[in-house]
Structure formats: structure tokens, C-alpha cells
Simulated scan of single mutants.
Amino acid sequence: MSFSILAAATAVPAAPTRLDPLTLFLEADIVVQLVMAGLLLASVWVWAIIVSFIMKMKRLNEQNRHFEKSFWRSDDLEALVGAEGKSVPSGRVAAAALGEWRRSTRNGVADRDGLRQRLASALDAAVTHESDQLAVQLNFLATVGSVAPFVGLFGTVWGIMNSFFQIGAQSNTSLAVVAPGISEALFATAIGLFAAIPAVIAYNRFSFRVNGFENRLYRFADRFHASLSRELEAE
């Protein structure tokens, strides 16, 4: 009976059968922990941008479709733009053109070609501003996509250096000495890729959607510019 109790007390714990990410994080060197924590925060922020951007684009597309449909049917563009235009990209583009139209025709039109050029410039500037506002958040995705793998690699290099230091300190080249440190170090690279891959995919996809949205605004601006040009010729 005593021998069985002694054997149970001195039994070696069973080796883990799979990786435990939390254990790898908690047992890592402080530098590697900071790298992992920074990459995890970046990954959370990337996914927050992805979700918010998808919702934002869906809302803007719906608002634009509704506004443009009402815009081309309206008999009073000034009233429509004043009531709904401030919250819709197409409305702000139209407001820029109407503002230039009012300023240039206040005392009559002396130079029709000059007015057409000023209207085109106002419309182009408004469209560019709207597309730039949409693309602001994409800069963070591009940064994470390009930098995160290298930050993770830095954590990996630091962890491997620390493992080799342990070999020298313990004068033991056994794999059991260096394996845990190397696993923790490689986990930093894995987290870097976990943050970078969605960021790169989202950046490419969202850049395409921003370009499509910008092209749609340009089509609206060109159509409105043509409408104002016809009105200018009728005067």
C-alpha cells in the first residue's frame, strides 16, 4: 500500500498533448510578452475597423442611392440639398457645386467657360475630399499588414536569443531546455501573421470599394456638371 502511495506522489506529470496559447504567453520573456500584447491589440483594432467599415459603406451606399434618386426628380435642388445633403456624400458634392454656382452668378455671368471650369474644380475637389475621408482608416490596415510580421519576427528573434542564453547559463544543450523558449518565440510570429493577414486582405478589398465609391461620385458629379452647363447655356 505504501509503495503505491509513494509511486503516485513521485509520478511525473503527463506532458501536454497540445499547445496552450495562454501558457505560451504567460511563460514568455517580458519583451516577447510586450510584442505579443501589442500585436493582439493591433489585431483587435484591425477587426474593429473591418466591421465598422463594412457597416459604414453599406450605410453610405444606401444613403447615396436614396439621395440621388430624389435629387434627379426634385424641382427644388437648393431645398433638397439644404435638407438632406449635409449627411450624404453625394449631397455634399452637389452642395459644393451649388455654392460655386451661387457665388459666380450673383452679379451675372461674364465668363461662361470660366464658370464651367470653376464648377468642375469644385466638384472634383468635393469628390476627392469624400474619398479621402473614407480612406483614412485604411492607412492603419496597410501599416499593420506590412509591419506586424516584422514585429512578430522581432519577438521570435528575441525569444530564440533568450533560449540560447539559457543553454549557456545551464551548460545544457538538451532540447528540453530550449524547446519552451523557442515555442514561445515562434508564437510571437504566429500572432504577427494573425494580425497581418486580415489587415492585408481587408485593405485590398476596401481599397477596391473606395475606388468604386469614388467613381460613382464622379459619375454623379459629371452628370450634375452637364446639367448646370445646359442651364448656363439657356441663360
Rank of each mutant, 00 (worst) to 15 (best):
F3L: 09
L6A: 09
A7E: 07
A7T: 09
A15T: 10
D20I: 01
P21V: 01
T23S: 13
F25C: 09
F25L: 11
L26K: 13
E27Q: 13
D29F: 04
L34Y: 14
G38T: 12
L39A: 03
L40I: 12
A42M: 11
V46L: 00
A48I: 03
I49Y: 04
S52P: 12
F53L: 04
I54E: 15
K56W: 02
R59S: 08
E62F: 14
R65N: 14
E68W: 05
K69N: 05
S70R: 14
S70A: 15
F71H: 00
W72Y: 07
D76Y: 07
G82C: 10
G85V: 00
K86R: 02
G91P: 03
G91M: 09
A94G: 04
L98Q: 11
R102D: 08
R103G: 05
S104G: 02
A110F: 11
D111S: 04
R112P: 00
G114S: 06
L119Y: 12
A120Q: 12
A120C: 15
A120S: 08
A120I: 06
S121W: 04
S121D: 08
S121L: 06
A122Q: 03
L123A: 08
A125F: 12
A125S: 15
V127D: 00
V127G: 06
T128S: 11
T128Q: 07
T128C: 08
H129V: 10
E130M: 08
D132Q: 12
V136L: 09
V136Q: 14
L138E: 05
N139W: 02
N139Q: 04
A142M: 05
A142W: 07
T143G: 03
V144T: 02
S146Q: 15
V147L: 06
V147H: 11
A148Y: 13
F150G: 11
T156E: 02
W158D: 08
G159P: 15
N162E: 10
F164N: 02
F164V: 07
Q166I: 12
I167G: 03
G168T: 00
Q170W: 06
N172A: 00
S174P: 04
A179W: 09
P180Q: 06
G181H: 09
I182Q: 14
S183Y: 08
E184F: 01
A185P: 05
F187W: 06
F187L: 03
F187A: 03
A188K: 02
T189W: 11
L193Q: 00
A195E: 03
A196C: 03
V200Y: 02
A202D: 09
F206P: 10
N211M: 03
A221E: 00
D222W: 10
R223N: 15
R223L: 07
H225A: 01
E233K: 10
E233Y: 01
